[in-house]
């Protein structure tokens, strides 16, 4: 869906559902997922439909992912950090896992 204009910025290593992904310093989680070609970051709690980041500006909440164990974080507002563990969310999430 998206590609980088140039490879600026140092590499940051994160994992998504256990798989290593290379992100860039300055990326947010949502952008790193898009750049890595991951086409959805969660399924909805109501019908289980796949969703991907929609607005990239904190409005839509479709970018919700689990970041380092904390569920339903807005991926488009959280900058990546080396070693960060991202999990995509399937349906209802957070507690009772």
């Amino acid at each position: 869906m998206f590609k980088r204009l140039g490879e600026v910025g140092a590499a940051v290593a994160i994992t998504v559902d256990g798989k290593p992904i290379r992100a860039r310093v300055g990326d947010t989680v949502a952008v790193a997922l898009l750049a890595a070609g991951i086409d959805h970051c969660r399924t909805t709690p109501v019908t289980g439909a796949p969703r991907a980041p929609y607005c990239l500006m904190g409005v839509c909440f479709d970018c919700l992912v689990t970041v380092d164990g904390v569920g339903s974080r807005q991926g488009c507002l959280v900058p990546v950090r080396d070693g960060m563990k991202i999990e995509t969310q399937q349906g209802k999430r957070e507690a009772g896992r």
Partner: peptide, 9 residues
């Protein structure tokens, strides 16, 4: 936003 902040197109 992808373009401005992250250089992605």
């Amino acid at each position: 936003t992808a373009l401005k902040a992250y250089g992605m197109v």
